[in-house]
Simulated scan of single mutants.
Amino acid sequence: MTAVVDTAPRSEKSGRGPGRWAAPPRPVWEERPSRAGLGAKGLVLALASLAVLFPLWIVVVTSLSSKRTIDETGGLVVIPKDLTFVAYSELLGGGQVQRAALVSIGVTVVGTLFSMTVSVLCAYGLSRTGSLGHRWILMTLLATMFFGAGLIPTYLLVQALGLTDTYLALILPSAVSVFNILVLRGFFMGISPELIDSARIDGAGDWRILWKIVLPLSRAVLAVITLFYAVGYWSAWFNASIYLTDQDMMPLQNVMIQLVQKQQRPVGLSTQINTGQLSPLAIQMAVMVMALLPVAVLSPFVQKHFRKGMLTGAVKG
């Protein structure tokens, strides 16, 4: 008797077609990259990082270099030699730069708190679709994104309010961003309505719901928007250039422009520069490092919130 060997696939023996068990084709971008692809990606990433970090390295090393080293290299320093913190100690020891840094810190802190308070309250009100004047207020805010009064009417308004030569002129004209409000509104609308309704049943009002429920659930987007406002205030220079005439009130960015572009010497350091103790180039690079340092320090701490905060807030409008 001849034995019959069953060579049919397992899928056919079970009475099911092979297509039922076959995995669907994966998109090209989901396939595991080859070694050549991984190497190319690593090379591109390394070159991009080098293009960003190398100029920053030059600025930091030059700011820490002595006047003799800068004179020997003829300008910017690439290889560290005779490092010293004289430029930073002189800048932070008093004078125009230290005062400008304190002004920038104060404007950034106060402005960010004010902007976040206004933006959160406005976004929460607009996220409640049954609130008074919800649709008209939203349409008005959207219109400001496409139509603006212009520089001259804004300057005349600030002047009529008596805000020129005051620190409020550095905060109020750019205190609110409609884009940030819309991002916050989209995030707030994504919070479960059942959660808010249950809080209302328990007797919670809007203020308590906002403080106890909405804000704790929105830490990611709040971190992102806070960083946006803080970087905007810290980097702002245009408002100070048109609304302020007192040099003692100028923020750090405007002082940096005077040092780097206009080649002006900061008040309180002319003696050290004239006597050869400090290099003007080291002073310029040190001011640039001071202007970049807060953003470089704060960004990594909120980097993990960027993807979650921006994408979640942008899914629903």
Rank of each mutant, 00 (worst) to 15 (best):
P216G: 10
M139P: 01
I191V: 08
A48I: 13
Q96I: 05
G95W: 01
V297H: 06
H305A: 15
W57S: 07
V109W: 14
V221S: 03
S198G: 02
D202V: 08
I58E: 05
A149R: 00
Q284C: 08
S299T: 07
S299Q: 07
R307P: 08
A100Q: 06
T166L: 10
A48Q: 05
A236V: 00
Q253N: 12
G95A: 03
M139G: 01
L142I: 15
T108H: 11
M145A: 01
R135T: 06
S127N: 09
L92I: 07
G268R: 13
L92C: 11
I242W: 03
S177P: 02
S104N: 15
T69F: 02
S279E: 02
L293H: 00
L184M: 14
A286Q: 07
G205Y: 04
M285Q: 07
V78K: 06
N180C: 08
A291F: 02
V52S: 12
R135E: 07
A286F: 05
P193E: 02
F85D: 08
I213G: 10
A123H: 09
I79A: 12
T166F: 07
A236L: 06
V86M: 12
Q263D: 10
A220T: 04
R35K: 06
Y243F: 11
K41C: 09
R26Q: 12
A230P: 01
L195P: 05
M249L: 14
Q159V: 05
P153S: 01
P55I: 00
H134M: 01
E194K: 03
V4T: 07
T164E: 02
P280K: 02
S104G: 15
A286E: 08
S218D: 06
A291M: 04
G75N: 11
T69N: 01
L278D: 05
K81E: 10
F228M: 14
V260C: 00
E31R: 09
M116S: 15
L45I: 08
K13S: 15
L278T: 03
I209P: 01
V60S: 00
M310R: 00
S65P: 06
T69V: 04
M250I: 11
L91Q: 13
W207K: 02
Y124R: 09
T84Y: 04
V231R: 12
V267F: 12
F85V: 12
A199M: 09
F146M: 13
K304H: 02
F54P: 06
Y88Q: 08
R200A: 08
P25T: 09
W29V: 13
I58C: 09
R200T: 01
